[in-house]
């Protein structure tokens, strides 16, 4: 297994609350890893630490290709992104006031380092828009390219979320509850999209998810977080039949 993302004793405290409790994980490049756990288990906080949005209380984060890991613990979010770690958000976070095309352009412009290319006009730049079109096709958004995002349906916005994250050609793609708030049809569509993308694209997918059908459907490996700590880690079948895991979930529902 080649590791693409690694944490060592990663910890985050908010006052007395330990949101992420000394998590040490190695994510392999060839598998889809799901991180599951009851509400408040620390999944989103874990993502925020990885992407540099929150500063860890202690521990370290490493990222890289082909076993060549670099420490990114103290990098600000934009550098983490440039180093190849991309994410989608649990609560949809896209550029609502812009069109779908413009949304993806943002990612491509920074990725290609063309921010200061004042000779270019974004709307008419062929080189830029070729790449954008390719991504839109990949995420089933071609027909919506010129639509302002604020008028999209929830499911479509979630697709834009994914297109944005992929546009920077990440090494690792963290998805935070991709099916949140979706109806069954939309859920089925996004799951098949994620599977297709995993085949077509060189990125490693890490997914947090509440929908257990989705989890069993796409995961090669499951990591269970409870109260910030790793409770179980391994093959889906093993992990889901683990008594402590069922207990953690039942306990949270009671």
């Amino acid at each position: 297994m080649t590791t693409v993302l690694k944490t060592e004793e990663l910890r985050k405290q908010f006052g007395d609350l330990v949101a992420v409790d000394d998590v040490s994980l190695e994510i392999g490049g060839e598998e889809i890893t799901s991180i599951i756990g009851p509400n408040g288990a620390g999944k989103t906080t874990f993502y925020n630490l990885l992407t540099g949005v929150l500063e860890p209380s202690s521990g370290s984060i490493w990222l890289g290709k082909e076993g060549d890991l670099r420490e990114i613990t103290d990098d600000p979010p934009h550098e983490v992104a440039r180093n190849g770690l991309s994410r989608s958000y649990q609560i949809t976070n896209i550029f609502e006031g812009l069109t779908v095309r413009e949304n993806v352009q943002v990612a491509r412009i920074t990725h290609e380092g063309r921010t200061f290319d004042f000779r270019s006009r974004a709307a008419k730049d062929e080189e830029l828009n070729e790449d954008v079109d390719e991504l839109l096709a990949l995420t089933n958004l071609t027909e919506l390219a010129e639509t302002p995002c604020e008028t999209l349906s929830h499911g479509e916005k979630r697709n834009v979320e994914i297109a944005l994250a992929l546009a920077i050609e990440p090494t690792v793609f963290l998805l935070d509850e991709p099916t949140a708030g979706m109806n069954p049809t939309e859920t089925r569509e996004i799951v098949s999209l994620i599977r297709e993308l995993d085949e077509d694209i060189d990125a490693t997918f890490v997914v947090t998810e509440h929908n257990m059908d989705v989890v069993t459907d796409i995961s090669d490996r499951i990591v269970v977080l409870a109260e910030g700590a790793v409770l179980a880690d391994g093959e889906p079948r093993e992990v889901l039949s683990d008594e402590r895991v069922t207990e953690a979930y039942l306990g949270s529902e009671a």
Partner: peptide, 12 residues
Amino acid sequence: RESPDRAAALGV
């Protein structure tokens, strides 16, 4: 203007 943290997460 639309979302500074989203922009940052894309490398801006």
